[in-house]
């Protein structure tokens, strides 16, 4: 696959270029990397890389729909992840390094790292299977989608989700705003992700 040529750094540049160069305000971009399970032969999409931009009203909508218990849980997970990355023991809750509340979209992006899609499951899997972009705009449409990930996205404040198949995987874009399908962004994603070499940038 051409994506075998993408290393982590060029993936990050590509995702960043999509988000920062877009006319629309996208909250995040994720590259789901395609592979085949050697044991079962099943097609698998798993986390390749992601770029989180956040949304302009992150600060105003810190809590979103989350409860105090949700926040406590999210902060504890972030403390543990910080510790895992740094190698230092996690700080006690009262000397918290993660004192800012974890927004719904931050949390959705974070839990995405642990997700995968088998044999065309989910919106990313569907896009890969059909080799065409899947675009869902509107909270109501996401909430009623036949896809757990789309419903989860809506529950965490995402209003628009687009999945665009590219060489070796699928690029997923999410926004807290309402963005209708446009060919410009899908074309841009395809161009950025099918150049197929590590010459980028």
């Amino acid at each position: 696959s051409s994506t075998a040529c993408f290393n982590q750094e060029t993936l990050q540049y590509r995702l960043q270029a999509v988000i920062e160069g877009a006319r629309e305000s996208w909250t995040y971009a994720i590259f789901w990397q395609s592979s085949v399970d050697a044991a079962t032969g099943a097609s698998l999409l798993a986390w390749g890389d992601g770029y989180y931009r956040g949304c302009d009203d992150d600060k105003r909508k810190l809590r979103g729909a989350s409860t105090a218990a949700d926040q406590e849980h999210r902060k504890r997970v972030l403390r543990e992840l910080n510790s895992l990355i740094s190698g230092a023991p996690p700080p006690a809750a009262d000397e918290d390094a993660v004192d800012e509340e974890v927004t719904d979209t931050e949390w959705f992006f974070l839990v995405s790292m642990a997700q995968s899609f088998v044999d065309g499951a989910g919106l990313p899997g569907h896009a890969l299977l059909t080799a065409s972009a899947a675009w869902v705009a509107g909270a109501d449409r996401l909430a009623s989608a036949a896809c757990e990930r789309a419903r989860q996205a809506q529950a965490f404040g995402i209003q628009t989700m687009a999945c665009i198949p590219v060489g070796g995987g699928v690029v997923e874009l999410g926004s807290t705003g309402l963005i209708y399908h446009n060919a410009e962004i899908t074309g841009k994603v395809r161009a950025l992700f099918t150049s197929g070499t590590d010459a980028f940038p």
């Binding site: 982590q8 990050q12 990397q33 986390w47 390749g48 890389d49 992601g50 989180y52 956040g54 600060k59 972030l78 543990e80 992840l81 910080n82 895992l84 990355i85 800012e100 931050e106 992006f109 974070l110 790292m113 642990a114």
Partner: peptide, 29 residues
């Protein structure tokens, strides 16, 4: 959990670092 795949670990590290920067910046408050 102690053995994250490298792609996830790098993504996670980047996300956590950027998050710290984002919330540290007084101009964004």
């Amino acid at each position: 959990e102690g053995d994250l795949p490298i792609a996830r670990k790098k993504s996670l590290q980047r996300f956590l670092e950027k998050r710290k920067e984002r919330y540290r910046s007084p101009t964004e408050l």
